[in-house]
């Protein structure tokens, strides 16, 4: 018997999310190709807009940290972040400065550091210092590098999607636990993996995605550490991410499993999502804008508090209500 919330999550959220990411990254890759062939300011705008759409699609993919994306360093290759010491930036700048010919071939690029293969590297190429040459030079080095990274990203996106779609693949195993299934031996293990996506994912959202740039005090704010700050997509990524968690929760119908007397957990979760998302929707601007305005910063702190509470609703309350293994060590063990 398939585990219903897991089947729901796969059919209604995971597959559409990966399909969308594959489509968006394919579109980005094509537009970069067109820009290289005939550069123009309008062409660069289109590429940048396609990049933003890919970032939004990545938000949904990045909350499904299970299965094929964990193979072959795919997640790191798509999104090398957090990068506290700026390794990716340094490496992509060296490649551009040297005009490394092996990086403009997707095969050669795939053999390089994971830090230069994905969206954070592409962001620098498209938005960083020197990006204006993209609208001027036909088939210039920088554009060919962008095309190579775009092709690599859409190739990984396709491969992950195909593995999710494979009839006997990870999706089948996750939905059909059993004694012969080495990854999921019983229904509780399958459900735990689903609940962990929320518990661990929301903790990550709180401590990493927000915590990377929103300090405990304003003196500890670090706007330049925010994910996608260079392209101005920080807020868009955060907004998409929290909405995606809500969508995954809603479509999985996890709440239907809650026993009598635990309905309050669903109410708390729905309440948390509503207020967290409303808080994010009321914000605007770049990562720096978010924390330099005291009003915006204060709302962002509110969002973080809400997200932390949501993480506990899943990691502690729902885990106990569904009698799943206590997530004592959360993000990882020790």
């Amino acid at each position: 018997m398939p585990v219903t919330p897991v089947s729901n999550a796969i059919a209604r959220f995971v597959l559409p999310a990966y399909e969308n990411f594959s489509k968006r990254s394919g579109d980005l890759s094509e537009r970069i190709g067109a820009l290289c062939a005939s550069p123009s300011p309008e062409g660069l705008d289109e590429v940048r807009s396609a990049f933003s759409n890919t970032v939004v699609a990545m938000a949904a993919v990045s909350i499904v940290r299970i299965g094929p994306i964990l193979e072959d360093n795919r997640l790191e290759r798509l999104l090398f972040w957090p990068d506290r010491r700026g390794i990716g930036l340094r490496q992509i700048q060296v490649i551009i400065a040297k005009q490394d010919p092996t990086a403009t071939d997707p095969g050669g690029l795939a053999g390089k550091s994971v830090a230069v293969q994905g969206l954070t590297a592409l962001e620098f190429v498209l938005f960083g210092e020197g990006a204006e040459t993209l609208e001027q030079i036909p088939n210039g080095y920088r554009c060919r590098l962008a095309r190579s990274i775009g092709t690599n990203v859409s190739g990984i996106a396709k491969a992950v999607l195909e593995e999710w779609q494979a009839p006997a693949g990870f999706a089948h195993g996750w939905q059909n636990p059993g004694p012969e299934n080495s990854a999921f031996r019983d229904e509780k293990e399958s459900l735990s993996a689903l609940v962990s996506l929320f518990a661990n994912g929301l903790e990550y959202y709180d401590t990493i995605e927000l915590g990377s740039f929103l300090g405990v005090t304003p003196e500890k704010d670090r706007p330049r550490r925010a994910l996608f700050h260079r392209s101005g997509n920080t807020l868009r990524f955060l907004q998409a991410g929290l909405k995606d968690f809500r969508e995954l929760y809603r479509t999985s119908e996890l709440a239907a499993l809650l026993p009598d007397g635990s309905a309050w957990i669903d109410e708390a979760v729905v309440f948390g999502f509503r207020h967290g998302i409303a808080g994010l929707e009321s914000l605007s601007g770049s990562a720096a804008d978010l924390i330099e305005s005291p009003q915006q910063r204060s709302k962002l702190v509110f969002v973080r508090t809400v997200v932390r509470g949501l993480g506990e609703n899943f990691g502690i309350d729902m885990t106990a209500a569904l009698d799943l293994t206590a997530n004592f060590s959360s993000l990882d063990g020790d």
């Binding site: 360093n73 790191e76 994971v114 990377s212």
Partner: peptide, 10 residues
Amino acid sequence: DFGRAKLNLA
């Protein structure tokens, strides 16, 4: 600064 997140798995 990044809690318990693993920064170098690759």
